[in-house]
């Protein structure tokens, strides 16, 4: 698949910026408004998927090769894990050890925003990896037959 027409590409290029910005908003404001790491990560992955639909399957893999995606994915999970472990320094596993701050401010709720950011990275990258693995490396053709030529 080589991607879609010029109109779709132009619009996708503009819209994707806003989608990624919106996903960042959902992640960062996760602790005071509805949202959080998981929804934000899903929106991020779907924004990249839009690029893939518009520009063809190879583009996202050029930007984020499989190996790098795997490392980022693990780093996101490890960050969350490290926050949970750091709770030990204040006495309990998973203890929210940072200052809680004033409610409804962006910098508040201790470790929650940090956890949200790590979960956002983890979910966004792993969902991206899942969707590319299912579409780019797709083998949905019978055995013995070559993959159909695409135009």
């Amino acid at each position: 698949m080589k991607g879609m027409s010029l109109i779709v590409r132009t619009i996708a290029r503009v819209v994707t910026t806003f989608i990624i910005l919106y996903s960042a908003y959902i992640v960062v404001y996760g602790h005071i408004t509805p949202g959080g790491g998981f929804p934000g990560g899903v929106i991020l992955a779907l924004g990249i998927m839009l690029l893939m639909l518009a520009f063809g399957k190879d583009l996202p893999l050029r930007k984020l090769p499989e190996g790098r995606a795997s490392v980022l994915d693990c780093l996101g999970a490890l960050g969350f894990w490290a926050i949970a472990l750091l709770g030990f320094t204040a006495g309990y596993f998973f203890l929210n050890f940072l200052g809680k701050g004033e409610p409804f401010r962006l910098v508040s709720a201790g470790t929650m925003p940090l956890s949200n950011i790590f979960i956002g990275i983890k979910v966004g990258v792993s969902l991206f990896a899942v969707l590319t693995a299912l579409s780019v490396y797709r083998r949905f053709y019978p055995p013995g037959e070559e993959p159909p030529e695409e135009d």
Binding site: A133, L134, R138, R139, F140, Y141, P142, P143, G144
Partner: peptide
């Protein structure tokens, strides 16, 4: 599950 189904289709052709 979907990944498994894809792989199964690749092996069995059905």
């Amino acid at each position: 599950l979907v990944a498994l189904v894809l792989r199964l289709y690749e092996k069995y052709g059905t």
